[in-house]
Design a protein around this nucleic acid. Sequence first.
RNA 1: GGCCCCAUCGUCUAGUGGACUAGGACAUCAGGUUUUCAUCCUGGAAACGGGGGUUCAAUUCCCCCUGGGGUCACCA
Length: 484
Amino acid sequence: MRTRIAPSPTGEFQLGNFRTALYNYALAKNTSGAFVVRVEDTDRNRYVEGSMERTLEVLEKYGIPGDESPLVGGPYEPYIQSQRLELYKEYAKKLLDSGHAYYCFCSKERLEELRDGQRKSGMAATRYDKKCLSLSSEEVQKKLDQGEPYVIRLNVPKDELIKVDDLVYGEITFDSNQIDDQVLIKGDGFPTYHFAVVVDDYIMNITHILRGNDWIPSTPKHILLYRFFGWEDRTPKFIHLPLLKELGSSKKLSKRFGAVAAMDFLKQGYLREAVLNFVMFLGWNPGTEKEIYSLDEFIKDFTIEKIGKTDLVVMDREKLLWYNGHYIRSLSVEDLMLRLAAWAQEHEIELPQADKKYHLEVLSLVHERMKTLSEFVPLTHYFYADPKVDPSLIVSFGGDESARIIKDLLSLYKAVDPKKWTSADLDELSHSYVTNGGYKTKQVFMSLRAAVTSETATPPIFDTLELLGKETTLRRLDSALARL
RNA sequence: GGCCCCAUCGUCUAGUGGACUAGGACAUCAGGUUUUCAUCCUGGAAACGGGGGUUCAAUUCCCCCUGGGGUCACCA
């Protein structure tokens, strides 16, 4: 199978489009076909500089690059529509000649009036009234010669039922009277999406179209085009996918809830395999209880039959977070460090300085506590620099005896043989202090934790002290004591 | 509003007439892993929108209602 995505360079590549890309990629790969990336930059007004490059880059980063794309080329070059303008004109001409398309010279003002009038009269959908269809060829030629601006419209037949055969939704029937005479070539000579997509999909031999179900209503226009060109036998299979929605909101993805651009998830410290795994299940599932999927496994198991019919899929960011934690935990500490370093470098995030051995030890303590790479710094700051400790935090655990506890621990730890500065020894020593002093374990250990780390949640406290070392521990206790 | 689509726990979903006391995962709650947090383990609560049919039998098939969404541009 040959599949494609057709991103338009009008902004950042969003997660919804990314999901579509992933499914297209998987379908092509599991049939040893090709996944095409074709940039649809036919809207000059909305064109955003650099958008195409970033889209191609993000596909690359997630490991689902196009087999054919503006980046790597391919047998049907070019893969950027603005470079294929002549082609569209040529094909528009064919439709013009066969009477399936016509020139329209109506002004924007007239079209607006038309629409307003139709709306007021309570007409269902607003449609062009085919006024210019009645122009004689002489009149058309005359206007053309005079250089009057024009568009080319599709001549949609009256009173016909147009059937769309969708592989997940089944057969959907549309009344042609509901369909507008779609503009095919715009006033600036650029094709509209509807026209360019059909021409290019045909030329590029695309066999399956997976796209968001917001495209369902325009599919009959595309079907008509295939028919008018005489390409019925090469009409691709249509597969429409549920749209993505934000949890807690009634509508589409929103920045209010966090990242929406596929690239941003990476930047925020999500692992690509986690985002991939999360996205796979937004509209598809294998029908088994397997939930952890690598890209390769997904490619192997992905089938159209298992795509869900649901209309809207809510993306639950909590689940993504869980996936991310899962993948972080499944990494070795060494690998995690490599990933962390690469991530920090790529996104210009500053990591604390220390030698590799120390980093690894810190990492092994917070490994299972990290849900995103970006949590590393807030989770470990006290391993790298003396924290500012709020005395009241210590008091909130130690009460009136806070100063005494810290003082006792300080002298207790001072006497420890540096060679015996280990988690187990400190644990034993401290526990006997708690018992002998008649304290509550929580009172003592939480005071200690707060004094040394300024946090209430850390790895086991004696593991922490061991790694911090005797000198640092004493220094921090000393400074905490001074402020109590 | 016209047209089109969709409808199982809070969320993603399994389920294609009887094997369903409706399964899993996330989230949530309780307990355990003898200090916190996290991990891990155990357990709990949690759903077939409503009404008609069809059938010996409906979550599953049909119709209506309701609800949700999409789309109606010289944007994609």
